[in-house]
Structure formats: structure tokens, C-alpha cells
């Protein structure tokens, strides 16, 4: 688990521990019995559809809301009892980012630097230019992407030991997304910890070491990203000139899931593609698509995989 292969050796304790944490809302939603460890030097991706409980978990981490049951520690600090000390070590980017709209980015970042008693303006200025952030316009005049940059800079400044990012790249163009991903990797390479949520797999696959899947408030799997992707590396959909036999594509190596319906076939391929391509060549292919699975298919593949081994 974690960056066991890092030069620093095996960290002696997790940076973030959620122990059987539950939080239910009267109107529904929340999380149920979430247990997670995130290790120093690790980027942990928290993946799930909207409304699954990602933001609830993150707001519990920040002590904005309190669990009905369970405890959370950050760097050994109880987030309830030692709330201020824990938050001193955390950089946080909220999911639905709201800022003080009438301030300029410079004013807001200055204010937060004072509240933290830490980051120098040199550091803030460096981050701001890294993200080419406009500092002197009122935040209300900034585009959504530029506001997000303000949120990222305030989260990163002061080099927090734990970085908690709720959907960090939403609203950012691909170039800036790339910058953000690099900044996240830099933080982890530094031996610090990143906990980020996302509802898009490619983002998590790109930056995270491990990923926790959450659905309906429950963490249903925690996997290394490469293992998770192993469950279904490619989705192959093909349509043919004539209906297929029920057992077509039945005995191919590396095919995890198979669905034949009339003249179409849907394959989830975990192994090499070559045998599938050879088999396809035996038929009169009218239409063909090969792509990486989306989140939903990944879930399905994961469940099916779990069922198969059960």
C-alpha cells in the first residue's frame, strides 16, 4: 500500500484515517461505515457518481460537519477534538467553491496567508504565476476557471502536509488540468498526501496511486489504480452483417465479460486485444468500436469480477 517503493521507506502511520465513519442526513444521502487509510506520499482518488458521498466525506475531514459515528484522524490529530491543529496541516479546495467575491484574488490570498500565519507573498506569487492567475481583479469578475485557480492556489500555499481536493479540475481547460495534475504529483513526490475526489475515471487514473470507489454512501472497493483498470482495460462493441451464434466469442483469452444480442457483441477485455481482433476478422464486421471503459462499466466489471471470485 502507498508508496512503499519511495526512497523514504515505509511510512510508520497513515496520514488520513477514517474509522467506521457514518453520517446520515434526514433527507437521505450521507455516508455509511466508511473506513479508509491514506498514506504519506500517496495520491488517493475518491471516485464515485455525483451524490455518492464524496463531498460529505471531505467535509467530515475538514470538521465542517460531524459524524454520527466513527472517528477521523489527520496526521494523528482527531479532526473533532484537535480541529484547528488538524486544519493547520490541511490544504482544502471545496467542491462547490465560493469565494469572497468582492475581494481581489490578491486580497483573499493575503487574508488567508495571515490566518495561517505561514505562506510568504513570494510563495503565493510563485503559485499565482504558475497558474497564470489574475491577482488584481475582483473575484466576481473572474471566469469559473480562474476562480478555481484562486481556490487551488489557496489550497496549495503554505505547502500543507495533506491536500484535500474536491473535484479539483472541474471547470478547467485541459491545459490547466494538466498543470493541476502535475502539481498534485509534485505534492506526493514530496512525501505529502493528496486526497482528491472525482467523478471522472481518467482524471483519477492519471494522478492517483489508489482509488476508493464510493456508491450510495458506502466504499465498495479500494484498489490500486492499475489493478482496477485490469478489470476491464478495453470495451469492444461490434456489429455484424449477420446474427451471431450464442456462443460466439465464447472462448477467447482475456475476455472478462461478453454479451451477444442478435448481430451485436459487447466484450470487456482485460487481456491483450490481438485474439479478439483475430476472432473479429472471421466475421463480416459492419461497425466496430474499441474504447476504455467509463466509470459505470468499470463498476459493473468490478462487481462481476468480485462475483466470479466469490
Amino acid at each position: 500500500m502507498g508508496s512503499l517503493d519511495s526512497d523514504r521507506g515505509i511510512p510508520d502511520r497513515p496520514a488520513i484515517v477514517l474509522d467506521d465513519v457514518s453520517k446520515r442526513y434526514r433527507g437521505g444521502g450521507g455516508v455509511d461505515g466508511v473506513t479508509l487509510d491514506v498514506w504519506p506520499g500517496e495520491v488517493f482518488g475518491f471516485l464515485g457518481p455525483n451524490g455518492a458521498g464524496k463531498t460529505t466525506t471531505i467535509r467530515l475531514l475538514l470538521d465542517l460537519i460531524r459524524p454520527d459515528r466513527g472517528t477521523i484522524t489527520v496526521l494523528g490529530l482527531d479532526t473533532r477534538r484537535d480541529s484547528v491543529a488538524a486544519r493547520r496541516r490541511i490544504g482544502y479546495l471545496p467542491g462547490e467553491l465560493a469565494l469572497y467575491d468582492r475581494m481581489t484574488a490578491r486580497e483573499l490570498l493575503t487574508h488567508f496567508a495571515y490566518l495561517r500565519g505561514g505562506p510568504t507573498w513570494e510563495e503565493i506569487g510563485r503559485l499565482a504565476s504558475q497558474f497564470s492567475l489574475e491577482l488584481d481583479r475582483p473575484i466576481r469578475e473572474l471566469s469559473k476557471g480562474n476562480r478555481q485557480k484562486v481556490g487551488l492556489v489557496q489550497a496549495l500555499m503554505g505547502r500543507p502536509d495533506v491536500l484535500v481536493l474536491d473535484e479539483p479540475t472541474s471547470g478547467l481547460d485541459p491545459l490547466v488540468q494538466h498543470q493541476v495534475h502535475r502539481a498534485i504529483r509534485d505534492v506526493a513526490a514530496d512525501g505529502r498526501t493528496v486526497f482528491l475526489s472525482s467523478h471522472v475515471l481518467p482524471e483519477v487514473a492519471q494522478v492517483a496511486d489508489r482509488v476508493g470507489l464510493i456508491r450510495d454512501g458506502r466504499v465498495i472497493a479500494v484498489e490500486r489504480v492499475q489493478d482496477l483498470r485490469g478489470h476491464a482495460a478495453h470495451i469492444v462493441d461490434a456489429r455484424f452483417a449477420a446474427p451471431l451464434a450464442d456462443d460466439a466469442f465464447g472462448d477467447l483469452p482475456g475476455v472478462d465479460g461478453r454479451r451477444v444480442a442478435g448481430d451485436t457483441v459487447h466484450l470487456e477485455v482485460t487481456g491483450p486485444l490481438a485474439p479478439v481482433v483475430r476472432e473479429l476478422g472471421r466475421f463480416d464486421v459492419v461497425d466496430l468500436s474499441v474504447r476504455e471503459p467509463d466509470l459505470e462499466e468499470l463498476f459493473l466489471a468490478f462487481y462481476e469480477g468480485a462475483d466470479a471470485t466469490a
Binding site: L64, R88, A98, F112
Partner: peptide, 15 residues
């Protein structure tokens, strides 16, 4: 109501 409480509480300041 405006949602700025999240980013404010990201700072080490007690309620």
C-alpha cells in the same frame, strides 16, 4: 448560505 464557510474553515481558525 453563500458557501464561503468552506474556504474560511480551510484555515486553522476555530469556530
Amino acid at each position: 448560505e453563500r458557501g464561503t464557510i468552506d474556504v474560511l474553515m480551510a484555515n486553522p481558525v476555530s469556530r
